[in-house]
């Protein structure tokens, strides 16, 4: 009985650890010169789907995520576009087929590089793990 309890506690403990790992927070970062501090979830969805092309400042929106298949990107697509990777790819394919001008997100290998590029690019918006946050960029709140 005691062994079962120990095993149960271990399983619960491990599941908690994996939940923390799987639930790593995806945050949005922009260039420090960008005056935007908050975005609605709907606006973020429009941005990641390529429908919004300009910031209020006039700078072109450049969405940057990690590479397809990465956990951060999967989480970002699911949270903000409500889509899987395949559904996301199909949405762009269909928009292209329809004749719409939609640019898919640019991809970089990891959050640290995304943060550096966002710090150098006025219109960039990056989807990164909260662990990759840096003072070089500004975090945008999502309402």
């Amino acid at each position: 009985m005691r062994r079962y309890i120990v095993a149960m506690v271990m399983v619960i403990g491990m599941s908690n650890v994996s939940a923390v790992h799987a639930g790593a927070e995806i945050v949005l970062v922009v260039n420090k010169s960008n005056p935007v501090n908050t975005l609605t979830k709907a606006r973020v969805r429009s941005m990641i789907l390529g429908a919004v092309k300009k910031w209020p400042t006039g700078d072109a929106v450049s969405v940057i995520t990690t590479s397809p298949g990465d956990a951060e990107r999967k989480s970002a697509l699911l949270t903000y576009a409500g889509m899987s990777e395949q559904q996301f790819a199909t949405a762009f394919l269909q928009a292209n087929f329809k004749g719409e001008d939609r640019t898919p997100p640019k991809t970089l290998p990891n959050g640290k590089i995304i943060v550096q590029i966002v710090a150098l690019t006025p219109g960039a918006i990056g989807f990164v793990d909260s662990a990759d946050l840096s003072p070089m960029v500004k975090r945008v709140a999502v309402e």
Partner: peptide
């Protein structure tokens, strides 16, 4: 989660070039 030091750098550079940002 993948970290920068576990990734082959050459694809990084290609991806960065493709990103086509103006770093003037």
């Amino acid at each position: 989660m993948r970290r920068w030091y576990t990734i082959k750098p050459f694809p990084y550079l290609c991806a960065a070039l493709l990103a086509n940002f103006q770093l003037s």
